[in-house]
Design a protein around this nucleic acid. Structure first.
Ligand SMILES: [Mn+2]
Ligand SMILES: [Mn+2]
Ligand SMILES: [Zn+2]
Ligand SMILES: [Zn+2]
Lengths: 138, 138
DNA sequence: CACTACTTTAGAATCATTATAAATTATAAA
DNA sequence: TTTATAATTTATAATGATTCTAAAGTAGTG
């Protein structure tokens, strides 16, 4: 109820009406210091904890997709069953813990310069993403 | 009907009975020089062309999954809707054409040495995969 | 040939996601 | 403030890829 104004502005400035559902999801997603990686199911469970104001699953999908469209979220493909979303929308690399399915951001400095020597005629590079799968070291 | 014996042996040696369905799928997948990247839907459509011997969708799923389990196929995650499979089971990198959704293998020499400077305590690296998204250059 | 375990198959079930259409709400105009 | 309108939320249905089920068919073995 306090500094919601930041999110109200954020929403208004991108042409989205600041509904209470969107503001709540904004706070959950963007009011944190670290990158947040989540699935719809994760988000849904967190939102369900507040039984006072239930947000429908359809709204969760709608909101996440409109935030993605506005560039506030990025979709990550690491697993074919579920979509992961990422509050870090810059081009960056990931660790994927294959024991827990958790994504962890890598800073660009953490990955040595990547150079692709091959080119495909008529095509240009759009992005380069590194996925480092990690597992328990025993 | 000729050099099926290669595939019959391949199947037998991995404890899979050489049924006509499996042999047919083997020929389609492994009797080629280039790496083959496909979805179940792709494979299904190709198999449907031969109307003389229909293979059920369940068998296509079963076969692809047992080939994966035996190490003859690798599953690739580039898209959250569909699973891609790859006849190149080594650790390797890809171009993904975002206009056509086509995967193209990169040789290891095509990607400059990748070094990951960050480590997570208690975790070891399992694999490093680079996905280079490409698009029409105009 | 006879037996058994493995395989194939059609169809049902599951599950994430998207679509639908009616009720609600935010916003701007009156 | 009231009204009008378009945007939004919602419950529910629909979709589509994948997996499950259980019955019929087949390969391997003796
Ligand atoms: Mn999506
Ligand atoms: Mn799978
Ligand atoms: Zn990230
Ligand atoms: Zn490949």
């Amino acid at each position: 109820m306090e500094n919601n104004s930041i999110f109200v502005e954020k929403l208004r400035s991108s042409g989205l009406r600041p509904t209470k559902q969107r503001i709540k999801i904004c706070k959950l997603l963007f009011d944190r210091k670290e990158t947040f990686h989540f699935t719809i199911n994760n988000l849904s469970k967190i939102l369900k904890k507040d039984k006072s104001e239930k947000i429908s699953l359809a709204t969760i999908y709608n909101t996440v997709h409109s935030f993605k469209k506005k560039g506030y979220l990025k979709e990550i493909s690491v697993n074919q069953n579920k979509s992961y979303f990422d509050t870090n929308t810059s081009n960056h690399h990931h660790f994927l813990d294959i024991n827990t399915n958790e994504l962890i951001d890598l800073k660009n400095e953490d990955v040595h310069n990547i150079k692709i020597k091959k080119r495909i005629p008529g095509k240009k590079i759009n992005s380069i993403e590194v996925l480092v799968k990690i597992e328990n070291s025993n």
